[in-house]
C-alpha cells in the first residue's frame, strides 16, 4: 500500500531529522515505531499522512481515507466534543445522522459519555485525546496513523484503543503508531521499528516474527465457585476477546501470555485450551506488493 523510499527530512540548515527512511505498510498490518523524544517520530508520521513533504525521497501509494491522531490535541476549540466530531464526520462526507451516531458510539466506547456536550476547551488532556482518537475513526480509514496515542489515556481507554486499532487492522487498514515506551505489543503490533538518529531500523525480536499471538480459551471451572468478571481488554497485550456461551477466547501477544494466564487463574477461571494463532504479521519486505 503505502511506501516510503529513501525519505529524508531536514528543516533549514539544521541537521536532518530523518535520513534514508524506507518503510512499507500493507493492509491489515500494525506497525509500531519506537523512539526517544525528538527522534523524528512525529515528523515521519506527518510525512506518512501527507501533512509534510520529504526533503528528498518519495512517498507512493497513500490511500484516500486517512485517520490521523496528532501527538497533541490542544483543546483550543470552543465547540463541544460532540459538535466537533459531527463537523469532522460531515467534512469526511457522512450525513449528519450517521456522523452523530458514529461519534456517539466512539465516545461511548472510549468513555467520554458525560463530557460530550462540554466545550473542548474544558476537557482534560485524556478526554481531549479521546476526541482526537474518535475523529480519526469516524470513517473506517485505509490508513490509521497515531502519534503516541497512549499518553494521557486512562487504563480502560488503553484497552479500548487496542480494540479499535485491532478492528481497524481487521477491516483492512494499515496501522502505524509511535510510542516512546514499550507499547509495541500492547496494540498487537506485528512489525516494530526503532527510530534513532534519524534512521529507521527493524526492532530485533519484533520484525519478521510470524507467530506472536496466542489464543487462550477460558471457561468456568467444572466445580467450584463462578469465576470473577475480568475486563480482558484492559490487560496488557490483549488484542481482542470473543465470548461464546460460558467460554471466553482471548487473543494475547506472546510476551504477555503468562501474565494473562496468571490473572485468569487468580480470578477463578479455568484454562481449557492454548492455541498458537497465526498472526497477520508479515516480515517487512516480503509482504504482498
Amino acid at each position: 500500500m503505502l511506501r516510503l523510499e529513501a525519505v529524508s527530512k531536514r528543516y533549514g540548515r539544521a541537521a536532518p531529522v530523518l535520513t534514508g527512511v524506507d518503510l512499507e505498510l500493507t493492509a491489515g498490518q500494525v506497525v509500531a515505531i519506537k523512539g526517544g523524544n525528538g527522534s523524528g517520530k512525529s515528523t515521519l508520521l506527518r510525512i506518512v499522512v501527507g501533512l509534510s513533504s520529504p526533503s528528498t525521497g518519495i512517498v507512493t501509494g497513500r490511500p484516500a481515507s486517512i485517520g490521523y491522531v496528532p501527538e497533541r490535541f490542544p483543546p483550543d476549540e470552543r465547540l463541544s466534543a460532540a459538535a466537533y466530531l459531527l463537523h469532522m464526520g460531515r467534512i469526511r462526507g457522512l450525513t449528519t445522522r450517521v456522523a452523530s451516531r458514529r461519534a456517539a458510539r466512539l465516545c461511548d466506547r472510549l468513555g467520554l459519555i458525560g463530557d460530550a456536550s462540554a466545550p473542548l476547551q474544558r476537557l482534560s488532556k485524556g478526554n481531549a485525546q479521546k476526541v482526537a482518537v474518535a475523529q480519526a475513526l469516524l470513517v473506517a480509514p485505509q490508513l490509521l496513523v497515531l502519534d503516541e496515542p497512549w499518553s494521557g489515556l486512562d487504563i480502560t481507554a488503553h484497552g479500548v484503543l487496542n480494540e479499535l486499532v485491532t478492528e481497524a487492522a481487521g477491516s483492512g487498514a494499515a496501522v502505524l503508531f509511535t510510542d516512546h515506551g514499550d507499547a509495541l505489543t500492547s496494540a498487537g503490533a506485528s512489525v516494530g521499528y526503532e527510530l534513532t538518529g534519524g534512521r529507521l531500523r527493524p526492532r530485533p525480536g519484533a520484525a519478521g516474527q510470524r507467530h506472536v499471538v496466542t489464543e487462550v480459551v477460558l471457561a468456568a471451572p467444572v466445580t467450584g465457585p463462578q469465576p470473577r468478571r475480568v475486563q480482558w481488554s484492559a490487560l496488557p497485550g490483549v488484542l481482542d476477546t470473543c465470548h461464546e456461551g460460558d467460554t471466553v477466547t482471548v487473543r494475547v501477544a506472546d510476551e504477555h501470555r503468562d501474565a494473562l494466564l496468571l490473572a485468569a487463574l487468580r480470578r477463578g477461571w479455568s484454562v481449557t485450551e492454548l492455541r498458537r494463532a497465526a498472526a497477520s504479521a508479515q516480515p517487512p519486505g516480503s509482504g504482498a506488493r
Binding site: 506527518r46 499522512v49 501527507g50 501533512l51 486517512i66 485517520g67 490521523y68 496528532p70 497533541r72 490535541f73 490542544p74 483550543d76 476549540e77 469532522m88 467534512i91 469526511r92 482526537a132 475523529q135
Partner: peptide, 9 residues
C-alpha cells in the same frame, strides 16, 4: 494540530 486534522479529514 487542529488544522492538521481538518486538512486530513
Amino acid at each position: 494540530e487542529h488544522r492538521a486534522i481538518t486538512v486530513i479529514s
